[in-house]
Structure formats: C-alpha cells, structure tokens
Amino acid sequence: MIRAIAALWLALLVGAPLLVVAAMSLGVPVDGLPPYRIPLLAGEGMGEAEAWSVLTEDGHFLWALWRSLWLAGVSALGCVALSYPMALGLLRVPPRRRMAVLGLVLLPFTVGFVLRMAGWVGLLRDSGLVNQALIGLGLITDPLPMLYSEGAMLAGMIHGYLPFAFMPVLAALSARDPALEQAAADLGAGRLTIFRTVTLPVTARAGLAGFLLVFIPAAGEFVIPELLGPPEALLAGRAIWQEFFSSRDWPLAAAASMALLGVLILPILLWQRAPR
C-alpha cells in the first residue's frame, strides 16, 4: 500500500515526464496551441522522427553538445582542484575556529545563485570594479573586455558549483587516517609525494563523486552561460532553452534533451555507483 503510493509518485513525477519527452522527440512542430503533433500518441506509428534527423544532421547541435561536455569537464576539474587545497587548508585551522572558517566558505552561497552571478557581472563588465581599479592604477587606458567571455563563464561555473565538490572532498579528507601520511613522512616522502601517493588515492572516490556532482548539472547549465558567457557560445542547455522558448520547436527541444541525457548516462551510472 505504502509502496504503491511511493511508486505512483515516482511514476507520475519522474517516469511519465521522461516518457513524454521521448514521445515528444518523435513529434512534429505545428502552428497552434499546443505547438506540436505526436503521431505515436495519435496511433499513427512512429512517424518520421524529423527532430532526430535535424539533430544528427545539423552539426550545430552536435557541436553544442561537445562544447557543453568540455565546459562541464573543465568546470568540474576546476572545482575539484580548488576543493582539495581549500579543504586541506581548512583542516589545518585549529578545531576551535574551524566551524567559523567553514561558515566563511559557505556564507557567500546564501546570497543565492542569480545574485552571485550579478556580482560577477559587476566585477567583470567594462565599467566594473576590476576595470575601474586597473584604469585607476594607470595600468590600462581602455577597459578590458572581460565579461561575456569563456573565462567569465568558467569563473561563474566554478563559483556556482564549488560546494558540490568541496563538501564530499572535505568529508573524505577529514575522515582519512592521519597515520598513513605520518608513515609516508617518516619514510622520507616529500609533501607533494605524500599528497600524490597517499592523500589523493585514499580520497579518490570522494574526488570522483565531487567531479560528477559538478559535471552532470554543469553539462546542462543555462543560466551562467546566458549571463556571463559569449553571446554566440552555443551549449546544450542553451540550445534546448532556445528551441523551446524562442523557436517553439518542442519536438526538437525534446530530442535535444534526450541526446543530452544519452551522453550523460555513463557519468550518471558512475555516480550512482559512487559512495555517498
């Protein structure tokens, strides 16, 4: 009985939506409301699957998919690479003050995602604080065009997603056995060697979990590229959004979503096998 209620919840709010997307990707866009027709639901067979042929023949979208994976990979790597030294630094803080410093790390996130990106706009735009400072110091005369660039987008991605990598890495590092590193040090290993041969391997699973926790949502990210990235930067999340809201081609948006899910299946399965 209770299991049936739970199953119904999942079927209605998780399973059915995914099936509808799959069906929609086989539909055709039409003028009118709603702006689609699905031959499969009308009992007319599979139809032509036009959206899929557009998707696979149009290099545009495949390129967007590839760029999304690349951006997600670099962002996730950046988050993990920043999380390790930050978490190790935090664990060197005396225990009495550690909670306060952890609070200092997490507090910026309470401002909310959109406002944090507004802060990056304020830092990086032509009349922004960084350009004002550089001009004030006499280092440059014309503002550097920093906003709407790959770099700005990456900064925003790492700023947006850092806690997803930081928290699992911190948890694994604080649970590790200090005796292992002590032993390595006694045997004469340098600090970098200890990190590479002891610390990193014993926390590798948490590092991988952190990487995937950033990588998967980042691959479909829409808001950050829209606010900070180059206007022409075509990414999967943006393509889906535009097909849906601007072009009103719902079948193509659905097919693009399925394609994005398809390339994320492997990392998702990896994530599900990673320990929490």
């Binding site: 998780v14 059915a16 995914l18 509808v20 829409f222 979503s257 899910l261």
Partner: peptide
C-alpha cells in the same frame, strides 16, 4: 527513478515536467 531527479540536468527535468 527515486535518484533520477538528483542527476538529471535542470533543463531536462524542467522540460520533461512541463511537457507532462
């Protein structure tokens, strides 16, 4: 299905719920 919302990209979840 219980874990899927944790790992689906937001645009996919959003689009799929809307279409539903």
């Amino acid at each position: 299905l219980a874990a899927a919302p944790l790992v689906l990209p937001e645009v996919v979840t959003g689009l799929s719920l809307l279409l539903l």
